[in-house]
C-alpha cells in the first residue's frame, strides 16, 4: 500500500516538474503566436539591397526603392525565386525614384521620380524595356501611387495649388 502511494506521489512530482519546465515555453509560444511571422530568407535578400522604402507588393512581385544613400533605385524582386529582376531602361543616373507601384504580372511598373528640377510620373513596361512619361493634367506634383492588379487603373496623389488631390487614370 505504502509502495503504491509512494509511486503516485512520485508521478505527481514528475508531472509538476514537467509543467514547471514547460510553462515558460508555453507562454513564449503564446506571445510568438501574436507576433507577425517574418520571412527570413527573403528579408535577408532585401537587406542586401541596402536601405529600402516605399514597398509595393503584388502577387509574386515586390517593387521597392532601395540602395545605398544617394544611389537609390527601383528594384523588382521575384519572391518565388528570391531574386531581383532587371529593369532595363528604368533607372537613370540623373533621377531619384520617390515611389513605385507594380501590377500582378510584374509587367507594368509606375514610378514617381525626381529628375532635374521636376517630379515626373512614368510607366515602365518591363518586357518591352520601354519607359514613357504619363502627363498630369491639370499640372501638379505627383507623390504616392497605387495600381490595380491588372495594371489598368492608377490612382495618383497630386499636389495642385497647395491642395492634395487623387487622380484616377485608366492606362492603355
Amino acid at each position: 500500500m505504502s509502495i503504491a502511494r509512494g509511486m503516485v506521489l512520485q508521478r505527481r512530482r514528475g508531472a509538476a516538474l514537467l509543467l514547471a519546465v514547460l510553462s515558460p515555453t508555453l507562454l513564449l509560444t503564446g506571445c510568438l503566436g501574436d507576433q507577425l511571422r517574418p520571412l527570413p530568407g527573403l528579408n535577408q535578400r532585401l537587406s542586401q539591397l541596402g536601405n529600402g522604402h516605399d514597398p509595393a507588393l503584388s502577387g509574386r512581385w515586390l517593387a521597392l526603392i532601395a540602395g545605398q544613400q544617394g544611389r537609390q533605385q527601383v528594384q523588382l524582386i521575384d519572391l518565388e525565386r528570391g531574386l531581383p529582376v532587371p529593369l532595363i531602361g528604368l533607372n537613370r543616373p540623373d533621377s531619384q525614384p520617390l515611389s513605385v507601384a507594380v501590377d500582378l504580372s510584374g509587367e507594368r511598373l509606375v514610378v514617381v521620380r525626381q529628375r532635374e528640377d521636376r517630379t515626373e510620373l512614368v510607366l515602365h513596361r518591363r518586357t518591352l524595356m520601354a519607359t514613357e512619361r504619363l502627363p498630369i493634367e491639370p499640372a501638379g506634383v505627383p507623390r504616392q501611387i497605387s495600381l490595380s492588379a491588372d495594371g489598368r487603373l492608377l490612382a495618383v496623389e497630386v499636389s495642385r495649388g497647395g491642395i492634395w488631390q487623387v487622380d484616377l487614370l485608366e492606362l492603355p
Binding site: 501611387i145 491642395i163 492634395w164 488631390q165 487623387v166 484616377l168 487614370l169
Partner: peptide
Amino acid sequence: LGLRRQPAPPGALGAENREQP
C-alpha cells in the same frame, strides 16, 4: 498615350485634401 482620366469619387465634405490613395 490614350490615357483616360476619371474623377476620383468626391469626399463627403467636397473639396478637401486627399492623400495616400
